[in-house]
């Protein structure tokens, strides 16, 4: 059973055991507008929480994606390279960006659950 977390930078993490799948929230995808390009992190790369590791570009502008937690990148959603619009169509599903290990589970406690994130985006 996976658990869903959100960051203040509008990323989601689906956590299963010591692994997480990461993407941008449906709310963020709506704010970004039409996504036309995604630059994904390299598999095998070790990242620190807060480090910029990916880029999402909409028609309007480029936005950095930050590592929501520390860990190692284990997979990248290469389907986004040819179909970046998937981020708009299914941000919290098929539009995932990358998978990573969770180096320090305590970092998860600083994240929001779905209800708290719902409140956060209403503010």
């Amino acid at each position: 059973m996976s658990k869903l977390y959100f960051t203040k930078d509008h990323e989601w993490l689906s956590v299963e055991g010591s692994n997480a799948t990461v993407g941008v929230s449906t709310y963020a995808a709506g704010q970004l507008g039409d996504v036309v390009f995604v630059e994904l992190p390299q598999i095998g790369k070790t990242v620190k929480k807060g480090e910029d590791i990916a880029v999402v570009e909409s028609v309007k502008s480029a936005s950095e994606i930050y590592a929501p937690i520390s860990g190692e990148i284990t997979a990248a959603n290469e389907a986004l390279e040819d179909a970046p619009e998937t981020v708009n169509e299914d941000a919290q599903g098929a539009g995932w960006f990358f998978k990573m290990t969770i180096a320090d589970a305590s970092e998860l406690s600083g994240l929001m659950d779905e209800a708290a994130y719902g409140e956060f985006t209403r503010e």
């Binding site: 039409d34 028609v59 309007k60």
Partner: peptide
């Protein structure tokens, strides 16, 4: 800057 349809449409 845009309407609900979005820039692409």
């Amino acid at each position: 800057v845009q309407f609900p349809d979005g820039i692409l449409k």
